[in-house]
Amino acid sequence: MTTASRAHSFNMAAAQYAASRPSYPPALFDTVEELIGRSLAGARVADIGAGTGIATALLRERGADVIAVEPGDGMAAEFRAALPDVPLVRGDGNALPFADASLDLLTYAQAWHWTDTGHSVPEALRVLRPGGALALWWNIPACDVPWISAQHERIAHHCGVTSPPAARHDDSQAARLAGLEGLSPTRRQVRWSRTVSLDLHLSNIATHSAFLVLGETGTQAFLAEERAHLREIFPDGRVEEGYEVDLLVAMR
């Protein structure tokens, strides 16, 4: 399965993605503002790999003049339904549809790892104004919470990932930093949580690319077993999901 195929697998589950994926806490955007040294209000921002618009909507709420870029048909359709008045262009981070030195901030929420940094880094440098910034972030499950760590292991086993947990964590960190060495990014982590129904929690799991490419039969088998595991931990059917947003900000 190629990276491109995995990236485009989200289009088949775009509505489910929009309904079940976690958002981001206000503290994330406070930290972005701190690191870029300016308010998001009035900033010219492009949200790349915008998906269904989860981050785009929050950037707009902070007063940013935001335009979204999304390559996928299904994700773009959900975006337009949710944010009909926000500009959306089709494309990706490897060939940005913007003029040189035209943006104050480029954001990638859960999307940088789908780019080819041999193209996306030069493109970011091209379109950012002097003093502009590139901000990348990911919602990472809080694996210091025992039940989340155990679930992470079950998912890895089901999806055929056999490397030790520490190695997978190191690999994911390396992937997030790839191509940014010359930009000297600043890294911060923002801890947060949300409480959702068990059904929504399982729906969120099913929107991850590892399950989308696995197929319906394999996914449903895992979710049925996982429901039984979690019923023992959360008998009231309310699941507290813990996250740590991994944020990287590099200045132009």
Score class of each variant (00 low, 15 high):
E181S: 12
R154A: 14
A167P: 05
C143Y: 04
P235S: 05
P141L: 11
H158K: 03
G179D: 09
R191I: 00
R231F: 07
S197V: 08
H157K: 14
G160M: 06
T195C: 11
P165Q: 10
V213A: 00
N204V: 09
A221K: 09
R231G: 07
L230N: 08
L183C: 08
S193M: 13
L214W: 00
L214E: 02
H229C: 15
I155E: 03
L200A: 10
D171M: 11
A166M: 07
F222V: 15
T219L: 09
T219K: 10
F234K: 03
E232L: 13
L183S: 05
G160S: 00
L183K: 08
Q173M: 11
G215N: 06
D171F: 04
S172D: 12
A174L: 13
A167T: 15
I205N: 07
R168F: 00
E181H: 01
F211Q: 07
L202R: 04
F234A: 13
D144Y: 02
D144F: 09
T195E: 13
F211C: 10
T195I: 13
D144L: 02
R231N: 14
S172P: 04
P141C: 03
P164A: 03
A178V: 08
L223R: 11
S197L: 07
L223P: 05
P185N: 09
V145A: 00
A206E: 09
P185Q: 09
T219P: 10
F234D: 12
H169L: 15
P185A: 06
G160T: 03
R188C: 01
A156T: 14
S163N: 04
I205Q: 02
G160C: 05
E226W: 04
I148H: 01
H229G: 00
L177K: 05
W147S: 10
A174P: 01
